[in-house]
């Protein structure tokens, strides 16, 4: 008769019980391991995103004027939000923000799409061209802003010089001093600076579209525009949606380019919400009202992102 032998693991020593390496090893085999891995990033996000956001939100319900300590920092409820309703600068800024973001995104998307389609053809020299096209995006906003301020300068600007020489302008034009051209000129600068973002993402998306689809479309007699409309754009829907949302967030929140080019002027013709919030905080030192403006921007962006995802039906795929 064969005796069955069962081998038991040796009993745990005290050291085994308190050995952290062994404890982590055991934990890694449980479902709690996921939470442990998430702790560092969750802590970081709490410290640098959630806490400042919540702090900014509560600031919007308080009196916070740094240069008026006599007013205290008491709770003022919806005072700042009520002021916003009757503040003409807020409404002008809101309208300008809509124009600024919509026009810039449309232009960036259009140029970015054309550039990506061209680069996707893998013609000779396309790799070098791809690097050149991406160059504007590598420039910081501050550098791009100052560079274009000089190029569009009414006295020394090379753009004016070129336009006069080819006969499009009779004389040098002060683009940023005229309210009818200031916003348009700023949008051109913004589009030049950021269209490579769309190029990059769309190009990545184009590489993932199977060529069989185009071959089949060719056989069916679809021309290039029909292929673009029926294959390329639908296949890029998710990427375009992500790129648009990211750019909208970037444009709504960043006042730096307009700050350099126009400071919101002349008058209020290029005043946008982010610039208004920045000036309210750092020129008027009214952090309460600036906080309220920022909260409104936050809500508008959340609303936009939600509506855009719903309307573009990205999640349905």
């Amino acid at each position: 008769m064969v005796e069955a032998r069962i081998s038991y693991p040796p009993p745990l020593t005290l050291w085994d019980r308190i050995n952290p390496v062994r404890m982590i090893g055991e934990l890694s085999e449980t479902r709690y391991w996921m939470y442990l891995l998430l702790i560092p990033s969750a802590l970081l996000i709490t410290a640098v995103v959630i806490y400042p956001t919540l702090y900014g939100m509560q600031m919007s319900f308080r009196e916070m004027r740094l240069n008026r300590p006599d007013l205290g920092t008491g709770w003022v409820g919806l005072k700042h939000y009520q002021r916003m309703l009757t503040d003409p600068i807020f409404w002008v800024s809101l309208r300008n923000t809509a124009v600024w973001v919509t026009s810039a995104i449309a232009l960036e998307f259009l140029i970015g799409l054309i550039a990506a389609l061209a680069l996707n053809r893998n013609l000779p020299g396309s790799k070098v061209l791809a690097v050149l096209i991406l160059l504007p995006y590598f420039l910081p906003n501050v550098v791009a802003g100052h560079m274009w301020a000089l190029m569009l300068d009414p006295r020394l600007g090379v753009i004016n010089d070129l336009l006069v020489k080819i006969g499009w302008l009779e004389g040098y034009k002060a683009w940023f001093a005229d309210p009818s051209t200031a916003m348009a000129a700023a949008i051109v600068v913004e589009a030049w600076h950021s269209f490579p973002f769309f190029t990059l993402l769309i190009l990545a998306g184009l590489k993932g579209i199977p060529s069989d689809l185009y071959k089949a479309a060719d056989i069916d007699g679809a021309g290039p525009f029909a292929q673009l409309r029926l294959i390329t754009l639908p296949m890029l829907k998710t990427i375009i949606a992500a790129a648009v949302i990211l750019r909208v967030i970037g444009l709504v929140n960043s006042p730096d380019l307009l700050l350099i080019l126009t400071s919101g002027g002349p008058g209020r013709s290029t005043q946008v919400l982010s610039l208004y919030a920045f000036q309210t905080a750092y020129k008027d030192f009214n952090f309460g009202y600036a906080g309220a403006l920022s909260v409104v921007m936050f809500i508008l962006l959340m609303g936009f992102a939600w509506a855009y995802v719903r309307l573009s039906k990205v999640n349905e795929d």
């Binding site: 002027g265 002349p266 013709s269 020129k283």
Partner: peptide, 24 residues
Amino acid sequence: FAGFAGWSESVVLPAFQRVLIKEA
């Protein structure tokens, strides 16, 4: 005075610019 710099930059300048561009 406290608030002078903000007022002059955020109110006086844009208001004057609006006159220059014949908006006001």
